[in-house]
């Protein structure tokens, strides 16, 4: 299990200040406008699941992954893997393989050279599996990665990660650059690893639809803080979209709020009022009954809609409306 407890991490001036002060500044934003990349984040990632990390641009998704694999040292809090601190800990890091969103560091080498390299580090590295995966993907193992397309590079690195035999596989911008066919193939490979070896896979992506389809659980990060985390269905159930129809005059926002429900968004189209409400389906059903209307209907939300509405509620992307 990966346990992240009250982790804060900052860059540049924030980092210097927290070091100097001896403790992290709890405020997400400092007087100079600098941001904590992550601010007091706590998260538990259970074993054997596919965990999606969602977030706006610059939210802290990659920072979270780098903390988990020991690239970054937290300024405050701790990151533990199976009860071991990760930073500078060989034992904990043996269980993690990190595929970052860049491939430039590998371009001078062939997949075979990289396989040899990683086999020095990971005792569980399976050359057979690497050969099988590269064959399945149709990757030439003796050609430099610089001659590969972007998608092929990603495939090669994911194949290396899967062959390393680690308990946790971290993939930043997982399916970036892959065509739909390859996307499916890579997903199947990852699924096999989860099913066969119980590998826990952490995937960060902007593609909410993909995460909702592929992951068991997810976390949404915004401005270095967790907005929500949990099982996908739970998350989806946290918000409800309701359409109200009233012939004489449309249902107003105030009327809905009077029921005690939090309205994240309210739109009006003729006599039809649409509201995004926080709460599970049962609670919302109970409370919207108090609003006088000809029709009040709940419409299921996609994870993408949850993502958008949650971020909008925090003022993100308003300017694009």
């Amino acid at each position: 299990m990966i346990e992240i407890s009250n982790v804060s991490i900052g860059f540049e001036t924030i980092r210097r200040r927290t070091k100097k002060d001896g403790a992290a500044n709890p405020a997400a934003e400092s007087g100079t406008g600098d941001m904590f990349a992550l601010d007091g984040v706590s998260l538990s990632i259970p074993e054997g699941c596919v965990y999606g990390i969602l977030g706006s641009n610059g939210a802290g998704k990659s920072t979270l992954l780098r903390l988990i694999c020991g690239v970054y040292r937290p300024d405050d809090g701790s990151v533990m893997i199976d009860g071991e601190k990760v930073w500078d800990n060989e034992k904990a890091k043996e269980k993690v393989f990190f595929v970052n969103d860049e491939t430039v560091q590998f371009t001078e080498y062939t997949p075979k050279e990289l396989a040899n390299y990683y086999s020095c580090y990971y005792e569980g590295f399976s050359v057979e599996m690497f050969d099988r995966l590269t064959e399945q993907l149709g990757l030439p193992v003796n050609r430099r990665l610089s001659t590969f397309s972007k998608g092929m590079k990603r495939q090669a690195i994911v194949a290396l990660g899967l062959s390393s035999g680690t308990k946790y596989l971290l993939i930043d911008e997982a399916f970036d650059g892959l065509d739909p066919a390859m996307r499916k193939l890579v997903k199947n490979m990852i699924t096999d690893a989860v099913l066969d070896r119980g590998t826990t896979v952490l995937i960060s992506s902007h593609n909410v639809t993909e995460i909702s389809e592929y992951c068991d659980r997810a976390v949404l990060i915004h401005k270095g803080k967790i907005v929500f985390s949990g099982e996908i269905d739970e998350i989806r159930g946290g918000l409800c979209k309701v359409q109200f129809v009233r012939k004489e005059s449309p249902v107003t926002r105030e009327e809905i709020e009077q029921t005690g429900l939090e309205v994240l968004q309210y739109t009006l189209l003729g006599s039809i009022a649409q509201a995004i409400l926080r709460g599970d389906s049962d609670t919302v059903s109970e409370k919207i009954g108090q609003v006088s209307s000809d029709l009040a209907e709940q419409i299921p939300l996609t994870l993408e809609e949850v993502f958008v509405y949650e971020l909008k509620a925090r003022g993100y992307g308003d300017e694009t409306d």
């Binding site: 780098r66 694999c69 020991g70 690239v71 060989e90 034992k91 890091k93 043996e94 993690v96 393989f97 990190f98 970052n100 860049e102 491939t103 430039v104 560091q105 590998f106 580090y121 990971y122």
Partner: peptide, 11 residues
Amino acid sequence: PHSDMMLSLPM
């Protein structure tokens, strides 16, 4: 990218 690769290695 290189530091991601190196610092995440188990050592």
